[in-house]
Amino acid sequence: MVQQVSVFLENTSGRLAELTRVLGDAGVNMRALMVADTAEFGVVRLICDRPRAAVDVLERAGFGASINEVIAVAVPDRPGGLADVLGVLGEQGLNVEYAYCFVSPSGAAAIDIFRVDDPLRASAVLTHAGIVVVEPAALYVSD
């Protein structure tokens, strides 16, 4: 299971810039960042090299931040690769709340992040289907 940092933001100008500045000043390096928003507020989800440290500095800087468990999957580099992954989850009745994609630190593969209801079971199911579930160590330092 991979630790994702989520931050609640009011939709005010400059708030996202502040967030990234706080992380940058603390020497936290981001691997992926995804913003979801409504008219009134937004949620920033990010994968970074030191999730615990990121939450600590964000909270000290007055942000509401939390850690959630998501699964990371190395998606096969061929047409239909992502469809196969989602197919496996769908067959097992595992609902995907949201997903986003980034290139792995080594640059070799695309990595998809999935937020599912039951990440433990999803990991097991995917592994069983021969899909590579990425270990946290490949993405960040476990702090």
């Binding site: 989520s6 409504t38 507020f41 949620v43 939390s66 959630n68 709340e97």
Partner: peptide, 15 residues
């Protein structure tokens, strides 16, 4: 204020 212990990642949960 959203409570400090709330899991912020899901828009749906916040809404």
């Amino acid at each position: 204020e959203v409570g400090p212990d709330f899991a912020f990642d899901e828009i749906r949960a916040l809404e």
